[in-house]
């Protein structure tokens, strides 16, 4: 009897596991590949979501004016109302963090720069830049900050491989578990 009961429990457990792998409510539908492609705009550090296209520093320099980036960010990437885009003039530094909180130099990944310009710029005309234009503007900003050479062409292969100065120079956020204090050992 006992073994039967045990077998029953086992069956139940298997049943629960199997159920967890199939939908319970049957609501919603599968998106089409086109729908996913159109919305899948968050770019991972490995760049797998980057679209086809390419851009150059020279094209980016033109677009920086043409797309009115300079109005808010300044002709030289600084001196206007929006966050500065060129590293602080602090000469040679040991720690790239000293260049200041400037996205195209501080970000550990060039993909973050591409992602943000693509999703959030230009102000009031978000989502209007083509992939080629975004590649070009990113190229120009990285060139301004001495991250890449003037003749580099950015595309979905080259951009994720750019060694940003802080690539390994930042603190990873820790794993999180329910009931976890903010910081182990932090008395408060």
């Amino acid at each position: 009897m006992r073994s039967f009961r045990f077998a029953g429990l086992l069956l139940l457990a298997v049943g629960v596991c199997a159920q967890a792998q199939s939908p319970t409510y049957g609501l919603g539908r599968a998106p089409t590949a086109e729908e996913v492609a159109a919305w899948d705009i968050a770019i991972s550090p490995d760049g797998k979501e980057l679209p086809a296209g390419s851009g150059t520093v020279a094209e980016g320099e033109e677009l920086y004016v043409q797309k009115t980036c300079f109005v808010c960010h300044g002709l030289n990437g600084t001196g206007a109302t929006a966050p500065r885009l060129i590293k602080r003039d602090v000469g040679e530094v040991d720690d790239p963090w000293d260049y200041g909180r400037v996205l195209p130099i501080r970000s550990p990944y060039a993909t973050t720069v591409w992602d943000y310009i693509n999703r959030g710029m230009p102000l009031g005309m978000e989502g209007t830049l083509t992939p080629d234009e975004v590649y070009s503007i990113v190229a120009y900003l990285l060139f301004l900050n001495d991250v890449i050479e003037e003749d580099m062409v950015l595309d979905q292969d080259s951009l994720p491989n750019i060694e940003m100065p802080n690539r390994n120079n930042f603190a990873r956020v820790p794993d999180w578990f329910p009931g976890q204090p903010r910081l182990e050992g932090y008395p408060y």
């Binding site: 550090p45 603190a171 956020v173």
Partner: peptide
């Protein structure tokens, strides 16, 4: 989107720090 890594979106970049302790303090309200 369920993903395999920390994406470092622009919002995430706002939490960027060099100090592991400060990074740990960046999720949860005390």
């Amino acid at each position: 989107k369920v993903v395999d890594q920390y994406y470092m979106t622009y919002n995430d970049y706002g939490h960027l720090t060099q100090d592991p302790a400060t990074a740990a303090l960046g999720y949860q309200i005390g």
